[in-house]
Amino acid sequence: MKKLSARRRHPLAALVVLIFALAATGGLWAALAPTSSASADASQSLQVEEGKRLFQVGCASCHGLNGEGTNLGPSLVGVGSAAVDFQVGTGRMPAQQPGAQVPSKKVIYNQAQIDQMAAYVATLGSGPVIPTQDQYSGGNVASGGELFRTNCAQCHNFAGAGGALSEGKYAPSLAGVSAKHIYEAMLTGPQNMPSFPNSTMPEQQKKDIIAYVQHATNSDANPSYGGMTLGAIGPVSEGLFGWIFALGALIGTAIWIAARTPKAKKS
């Protein structure tokens, strides 16, 4: 360093710096800019093209040929790529049949196809985009628990076990749902779930909630020290268990106490 700083006033110093700067800028431009942006554009438009093809085969019968919606399915303008990634990535879409709620089932598209459809739907109107890994990992479990109880537990139950809603709809169990899908669900509000946009629930809070859900529903990280959880769905299963087994045992004991003692035969 000392050597360098001693020669910084040398007549040729400015020239050397200039040459270095030009070489660096030119090199970087040559190495990155033209080729990568061209290929990105190309792959992007190819992806949208592929996605459109997949969409018209698998989705258009309900959502319309251009995603404008029909009476069978809502418009997809402005739902964003995150909604597509969630709905198709959890197997909810394509829907099996109309009904109160479209359940999660086997995923029939691979991730590459889902990304293509998401890219196509994103071109219909701007909406929430698929989050990256650093947007949904590294949350705080404790603060996530508080946020979960304020925002989520009313429907998804204190343990994330899900619960019933009105007229056949229900909040599904959160066990085994991937962090990305939980994030997308909070962001987009799939089906009847309200959305929790970043404007009212910042990204860090979403990370915390995801950390809590993944901790609470993972029986290895968080075994139930009370023994059988009976599904952790609250008083219904616990009451049923109590009425049938505990009361049954009590009735059996009462019958034994009051039973006639065997009498000796007279003969």
């Binding site: 304020t150 925002n151 509000g189 309200p194 959305s195 929790f196 946009p197 404007s199 009212t200 629930m201």
Partner: peptide
């Protein structure tokens, strides 16, 4: 809370 923060379909307490 800004009115513009509350999106259609969202739920805030």
């Amino acid at each position: 809370i800004k009115a513009s923060d509350v999106q259609v379909g969202s739920l805030t307490f």
